[in-house]
Every structure is written in C-alpha cells, then in structure tokens.
Computed example of a mutant assay.
Amino acid sequence: MTIAAGILPEFDDEMARTRKVLAAVPQTSLDWKPGESLRTIGWNANHLSEIVGWSKGILEEDEFDIAPVDGPRYETPSLADPAAIVAAFDANVIQARAAIAAATDAQMAEPWSMKMGGQTLFTMPKGACLRTWVLNHSVHHRGILSVYLRMNGVELTPVYDA
C-alpha cells in the first residue's frame, strides 16, 4: 500500500466531519469570540477551510515562506459568508484529495520546509507534514470551532458520533 493510499481514508473521513462543523457556522456568530485574546468563530472557520488547501503546495513545492523578505506576509482568508467558507473548503478538499492521490511514496519522503523571512522554522518529510499540518492541525481547529459554536448556542452532533 502506498503512503497516499494509507492517508486517503483518514483524509476523507476527517474532511467529512470537518465539513459538518463548518456547515453549522451561522452568519450571526462570525464575529463572536470567547475572550479578548482569542480568535473569532469566523477566523477559525476560515482557517479550517484553508488548512486542507495547503496539501497541494506541500506536495508540489519544497518550501513555503509565510513572511517573505521581498513580499507580503501570508494572511488567513477572511470570507464573511459561511456558505462561501464551506464552498472554499469544498474546493480545497477536491484539490487536496487529487494531489494526495497522485503523490508517490518518493514524493511523500521529500523534505518540505516552513520559513519566515527566509529563515527555516522546520523541515520534515512531505507525508509527515500532511499528517501534522493538514490532518492533525484540522482536527485541532475543528475542536476549537466546535467548542466556540457550542458556547455560542449552536447545536452540534458529536463529531465522532457513529
């Protein structure tokens, strides 16, 4: 079994669970946050919809500089419509799944680096990066968003309910 074949069932399952949470975000709650130093529901929903979109770049590029010396700093999207956030997520899932499905084991073993201002923050194999910074990172932010939604009175079924 290839690495991609091993990742795809988990990817499909986690993305379906993530979509359910994103689809529950109400327009009226986008600006809500539980504390001054914390991010809003809207920021978390946008971030969650973008994370999966990083897959293609991780697999096709060798590095990403979040704040290049000669260019603008990377910014999380700020879509203000929950339907647009879900649509962006859906498009990113399609693109990511195709990139993962096409990835070879050799490609998954290639190093990928996150940089800031030209300085390397970390380097890891592309397959490990997908697991850590796409799948696990998505689960992390999905958990935050789920709690924020519940704190805001939004009813959700448990993410891992059968």
Rank of each mutant, 00 (worst) to 15 (best):
V154M: 03
G143S: 11
V86T: 14
G6A: 04
V52Q: 03
I58G: 04
L8K: 01
D105E: 12
N152K: 05
A109R: 06
H137L: 06
L145F: 08
L30Y: 04
A67D: 15
D65A: 04
T123F: 08
I85D: 04
G71Y: 07
V93G: 02
R39K: 15
I144D: 08
A84Y: 05
K115F: 12
I51N: 02
A162M: 05
R150K: 15
M114K: 08
D31R: 00
F11M: 05
L8M: 07
T2R: 07
P26K: 01
F64T: 14
R39N: 15
G35I: 07
K33T: 12
Q95P: 00
R17V: 08
K20I: 11
I85E: 02
R19Y: 10
P77M: 10
E10H: 07
M15H: 05
Q95R: 06
I58C: 03
V134N: 05
G117E: 08
M151G: 06
P34E: 07
S37I: 11
M15V: 11
T123L: 07
N46I: 09
P34H: 12
A98D: 14
E50Y: 14
A91F: 06
A23T: 13
R97I: 12
A99T: 13
D90Y: 04
K33L: 09
M151D: 12
D12S: 07
R19N: 07
T28C: 00
W133P: 00
T132Q: 13
K126E: 14
Q107L: 11
D81V: 15
D90E: 13
H141W: 11
